[in-house]
Amino acid sequence: MTTHKRRLRLSTVVDHAILIAGSLLMIVPVLMLVQMTSMPDLINMKTGPSLSIGDQWVPNFEKAMFQADGFSGINTGTRMLMNSFILGIGFAFGKIFVGMLAAYAIVYFRMRYASLAFWIIFTTLLLPLEVRILPSYEVVQRLGMLNTYQGLIIPLIASATATFFFRQYFRSIPEELVEAARIDGAGPVRFFFDILIPLSRTMIAAMFIIMFVYGWNQYLWPTMVTTEEGMFTLVRGIKQITQMLEGNQIPEYGRANMLALIAILPPVMIVIFFQSWFVKGLTESDK
């Protein structure tokens, strides 16, 4: 009797070792964060992350979600979570709406001044919000939009990333499709709703995921335009989190880390569950 023993090649072992090391590098720091949310603050303060799992998840979660700081008493975790969703969804929706319409006009219409419009729009790709952050703040202030959702969301939309993405995608759709539709008697509006939107479903979904994560994770801009605690998003609230670790007698590690965890959970889940769309959307934009 012979048994075939698969020869394990050294190079394969090395490959897996490298990949496992990389995976651990990504996961372990976050696991430490998670572990600390299960422990009482006193132990966290003394020993930091450890291998034991405590029983403080529920109380820490309740503190994180429902306890508020500051004068107003409204910036609970729930409130920040809601604001984060408003920012993420509002930003993604606005970006896609504005971008799709503009890209449709640019790709499918014969226009005078088409190239002018093109340049006006795509120049915005050159300068990220961060380099014009103060004047943008002043503009929002002058328009009385500080501490409003509009002021939070709309300036972030003022670049052409989604427009550029949809332009690239629309250009990859065979020309004959619009020609066939014209012969079939579809005008521009009908073509948009009957053909283009159904064809772009995957792309819209991919874009939505990317933009949601991008909006959710905004930090600098929300830090500047929202000063009222009721407007804070989770990521904006991180500042409060770090302050929790500074000011108090016993730093509230459990609550702070729980808030950090809640801040990363929705985008991480979305990216993991819709991985293939997300990757497709992200890498298509390179073309």
Partner: peptide, 28 residues
């Protein structure tokens, strides 16, 4: 632009309006 684009004067302008308004106010 596609070879056989639609021709309309006001529709593309309407489509571009949100984008242009947003970047005029919050970018330029």
């Amino acid at each position: 632009m596609k070879r056989a684009g639609f021709t309309s004067a006001w529709l593309p302008a309407m489509l571009l309006l949100p984008q242009l308004a947003v970047i005029a106010i919050f970018f330029y």
